[in-house]
Design a protein around this nucleic acid. Structure first.
Lengths: 189, 189
DNA sequence: ATGCTTTCTTAACCCAAGTCAATGAAAAAT
DNA sequence: ATTTTTCATTGACTTGGGTTAAGAAAGCAT
């Protein structure tokens, strides 16, 4: 059983084979086409996600303009703010490629917790990790200029530059596609 | 007993008078002069903080330049990343005014948890709040231009503009003091 | 293959923020 | 009270990202 979901869970908790079988039994996987909107602004999230295959991004629509805040890849969990707060989402979640995604619902989560109580310990641990990475993201953005942010991305997540269109990378860096083109040109020298 | 610390705790948990007495007994309060460094880059935090009076800010030193990431005021808890991870801090925490601060240590926290076990429930709740506000901060920064960020601050935290020197506000907005001066001048019209 | 759409690049021009330097105002130190 | 230091503003000039528009390149569908 080399499901990516177990590789992820093992970061927090060691499951027995029986427990893995329970998880496999309960989990709900769907294949989604590129462009599928997992969560729209204004809607309240009914599900959280775990990416088995593919790539998802989150963005705000500000006066008709896309402002990308995050890319998610394989083995990453996505817990929309709206899923936690039960209030309408301020941002979109959309598949950037054809995706295979495990969908989490409050009901399935409750069932899992009931059958494997110690899974509940994962919650705060994931929260802590999430908070740490969110802080790093903010601090990095504040500390660096657009050009430095591009270099930082190249250094730390080169695979994103391969798989994601440049106009979305530009948005993620807080600049326009034209500016990213110029930055890349400058850096070649 | 109108200690600000109880007003804060009541957001998460209702304490009886006896429990409040226990908290009062264990808590450790100190008065600190303006300019006191609560945590220096490179040091590992031994304490977390709760501001009873005064104002604290966090900043990175990047190539000799101060990059402010956050201001903390009365009734705000400060849990340095370094306190959670036990690794050296990447940023500074410093008193912007004379402060009265309640200091939290692992030992005192353990003692509190032992005497009032349900306080442990607060941890994940605070984490969740912290994560939400961190996300909002990042998203706001990404979505807005420097000028819009200034207006946003004026709208949402006008008291900060009163009590904090402009060159630190400028840094917090991601710009230079001269630029903030010009923005303010533009906006007067 | 062929055309159609999406994405990327380039160029010319504009504007806001950065830089450097000087001055003035306010706060702190003595 | 006066000196010193810190903070805020202004001006002249530079720089880098935004805007607009055009064309090239890469993907996609038929």
């Amino acid at each position: 059983m080399d499901d990516p979901i177990f590789e992820f869970l093992s970061k927090y908790i060691d499951l027995t084979e029986e427990e893995k079988a329970i998880v496999s039994d309960i989990k709900f996987v769907r294949s989604l086409k590129k462009g599928t909107v997992l969560l729209a602004q204004g809607d309240t999230a009914q599900e959280c996600f775990f990416i088995l295959k593919g790539c998802v991004y989150s963005y705000y629509l500000v006066e008709g303009e896309v402002k990308v805040t995050e890319f998610f890849e394989e083995k990453q969990p996505i817990t929309p703010v709206s899923y936690t707060t039960k209030r309408p989402s301020e941002y979109y979640l959309e598949c950037l490629e054809d995706c295979i995604i495990s969908m989490g619902s409050p009901e399935r989560t409750a069932e899992l917790m009931q059958k494997i109580p110690r899974l509940a310990l994962m919650g705060p641990m994931m929260l802590e990790d999430e908070l740490a990475s969110q802080r790093i993201k903010y601090d990095t953005f504040i500390k660096l200029s657009p050009e430095q942010r591009y270099l930082h991305l190249q250094e730390n997540s080169p695979q994103l530059l391969e798989r994601i269109p440049q106009y979305l990378i530009a948005s993620y860096l807080g600049i326009k596609p034209e500016s990213l083109s110029r930055i890349r040109k400058r850096l070649v020298k």
